[in-house]
Write a protein that binds this DNA or RNA. Structure first.
Lengths: 220, 220
DNA sequence: AAAAATTTTTAGATTTACCTAAAAATTTAA
DNA sequence: TTAAATTTTTAGGTAAATCTAAAAATTTTT
């Protein structure tokens, strides 16, 4: 059994490893709002427990066991987010911090029943996939909105940025999960994207378009 | 803000204070599965924070602030128990340990929304009253089943013993919350009680009868 | 390929919540 | 009302997770 803190380290390493192969001490420290010296200490401990592979000065990678724990926490986090949004009417930009606490509740029974209660959701309120109880993720086929061409259409199925500011902005624009969109124009000047929604036409910046994920329903 | 451990001490002191006025060091130690020396340390800390009044060798009492925190934790614990039983189909003897963890999740918003989601329940799955968000308990009028006379009837509305063994036993006998009962006889020999339920007649020991709480609907 | 900059680790402390063993205070019993 | 038993506290220590400051290793730049 891991401590609350160990679980957080494993989760952080897991997420960082999605971007870079070798996860660096400083990156972990920054993410966890702590100091590199503290990270080194913890990494040694996790290595002794067989949860990470660690070579001095070379960064860390999760072992199979460490990855399993991390995925399990990700699963819990995302299921709780679904609960908060679908059952307790939280907004998608309000759930992260609470889920951060709830993800450490230890009962396996609890999570399996929660999963069932929620109808075995495949994605959380931001479109991030929820692993099943065996740690398997459903295959997802996302394209960044920015990569679409004029005339392409699809459904908003996720975001790759979870800040409250960004999510509130999308909400205001009416760009929420499940919405159908079509690219009507791409502005030469600033690369901003003109989008047709069912009921209106809007313009979004490149920066916003980068972080919206689309499941395409065919090019044109 | 209190730590997880501090919250548990306050909760334990609160519950012990329901039985004895002056809560003793040893009693706390036993309840918390720790040593008296550790309790003394923690009590000093809580006293410094103004959460308990403490005189050496004389035991502790909660201050107003300490009591507020304790009641808040009791509220959270009992609401989560309702959630587990009513929404996730846990049995009433399975919920305590998980609720023990969930009660420390810090978001006020979460608890208010959970309360609403559950329909503002007044009691947990064992019949224990749930304080409202201002810490006020609904008035409850319980009589111990053992105190009823032959011919008296009422509704099972609570239990004063939460062990899994006891709860499982009640379940098997069909003595669950909400059931209508009438006392048909009290055995001279061993004080065991003969009870009429809607569909059957059963006999329970004095020991069991002591821990069943009845809201009476009139003597006969 | 040195020098400079950056990253990482080590060394030594601190805080929280524990512990054991022994001393002190209180309560109970003779 | 002493003596014995019990309860509580003190003193001194430990383990987990942190920290700062300085040393060591690595990477980047010139």
């Amino acid at each position: 059994m891991q401590s609350y803190t160990e679980e957080n380290y494993l989760k952080t390493i897991y997420h960082l490893a999605e971007k870079t192969t070798n996860v660096q001490t400083n990156a972990i420290a920054e993410q966890m709002q702590t100091k590199p010296a503290s990270v080194t200490d913890m990494i040694k401990k996790l290595a002794e427990k067989g949860l990470v592979d660690y070579i001095k000065y070379q960064g860390v990678t999760l072992t199979e066991a460490g990855k399993n724990t991390a995925v399990d926490i990700v699963r819990k986090h995302r299921l709780w987010e679904v609960f908060l949004v679908n059952k307790l009417n939280f907004k998608w930009d309000e759930v992260h911090d609470v889920a951060e606490e709830l993800e450490h509740i230890k009962s396996i029974e609890l999570i399996e029943r929660l999963d069932e209660f929620l109808g075995f959701p495949k994605a959380d309120p931001h479109g991030d996939p929820i692993p099943d109880k065996n740690g398997r993720f459903a295959k997802t086929q996302f394209i960044k909105l920015i990569e679409l061409k004029i005339g392409d259409s699809g459904t908003i199925t996720g975001v790759s940025q979870h800040s409250s500011a960004f999510l509130k902005h999308l909400e205001k624009l009416g760009l929420t999960l499940g919405k159908q969109i079509q690219i009507s124009d791409i502005t030469d000047f600033d690369g901003s994207v003109e989008i047709k929604l069912s009921d209106k036409q809007i313009n979004i910046s490149r920066e916003v378009a980068k972080h919206i994920l689309i499941s395409s329903n065919g090019k044109n």
